[in-house]
Amino acid sequence: MKKAIKSLAIVALVAFTTFSFTKAVEKKDIKTDKSKLVWKGYKVTGSHEGTIAIKSGSLSFDNDKLVGGEFVIDMTTISSTDLEGEYKGKLDKHLKSDDFFGVENHSTSTLVFSKVTASGKNSYSVTGNLTIKGKTNPITFTVSIYGNKATANLKVDRTKYDVRYGSTSFFDGLKDKAIYDEFDLVADLEF
């Protein structure tokens, strides 16, 4: 009996010591007012760019190593920054329409990290599930962390999310009206 109690005490001491030095995963909320999400879309005759607001988001760390993240993007805020006046209004309205992101029925998009692998001192290769217009697809991209800031660059194939307007993958004869299938997202985050 004394041997069993002694063994139990040793196990408890080892467990207590181990848990004392193990940090739990720490979830850090994104400061949405200090973070920025920029988009850039390309067409045969040039490009357009703008911003979209981050509604909420967080990054998860284990011993200061990135291990997860999740974001909600407010699609109703999609806006061009390279145009002014009437042309800006027309493009912004068109981007919110069903031709593009259908924000009336799909007011948010989400990104949930599913796998994070360190690829350098402050760099991570991330695979996540991106949902736009109710369609979810895996996407892989790079995240860099410096102190309480992070940057990420994503290349998104819009046709995977039923955003087909002006796509030569679905429409013939577009010529100089064609819009390329991939667009860029650049996130500058503070947490």
Rank of each mutant, 00 (worst) to 15 (best):
L91Q: 02
K23W: 11
D33Y: 10
S7K: 12
A9P: 05
V11I: 11
T77L: 15
T22W: 13
S80Q: 07
K31R: 14
E70M: 02
T17R: 10
G68T: 00
T32H: 01
D99T: 03
K43H: 14
T51F: 04
A15N: 03
I10W: 07
V25I: 15
K40R: 15
V14Y: 12
L8S: 15
K6F: 12
V72E: 07
D29P: 09
V11D: 11
K93H: 08
D74Y: 00
T18W: 13
Y87E: 12
F19S: 04
K34F: 10
D29F: 04
F16V: 12
A24R: 13
I78F: 05
L91W: 01
T18V: 15
A9V: 15
K31M: 13
I54H: 06
D98R: 06
L66C: 00
K96E: 07
S47W: 02
W39L: 03
S79C: 07
I52D: 02
T45W: 11
T76R: 10
K34S: 01
L91A: 02
F101H: 06
V11G: 14
K36A: 04
E70H: 05
F21N: 11
I52H: 05
D64N: 12
T51A: 09
D92I: 08
V14E: 12
V11S: 12
K93E: 02
H94L: 14
F101T: 04
S47Y: 10
G85H: 03
V44N: 06
E84S: 11
G89E: 11
I5Y: 08
F71M: 01
N63V: 08
L91H: 08
K27Q: 06
A4G: 09
T77W: 15
K23I: 02
K90F: 03
L37P: 02
G46E: 03
H48K: 03
K96P: 02
W39R: 03
G50L: 04
T17F: 13
S58R: 01
A15Y: 06
D99S: 06
D82K: 05
D92H: 14
D64W: 15
S79H: 06
K93S: 06
A4D: 14
F101C: 09
Y42Q: 11
S20F: 12
T32S: 00
E70R: 03
D33I: 08
I10K: 09
A9M: 13
K6Q: 13
V14T: 13
I5E: 06
I5G: 08
I73T: 00
H94M: 12
K6V: 05
I30G: 00
S7A: 14
K90W: 04
D92N: 14
T76K: 07
D64A: 04
L59H: 00
T77S: 15
V72G: 02
H94V: 05
G69T: 06
D82A: 08
I54Y: 11
A9E: 12
G89V: 05
I10A: 08
T18P: 10
K6I: 14
V38M: 12
G68H: 03
E26P: 05
I5L: 09
F61I: 01
L8N: 08
K6T: 11
E26Y: 04
L83N: 01
I52E: 06
T76Y: 07
A9S: 09
H48W: 04
G85R: 07
G50S: 05
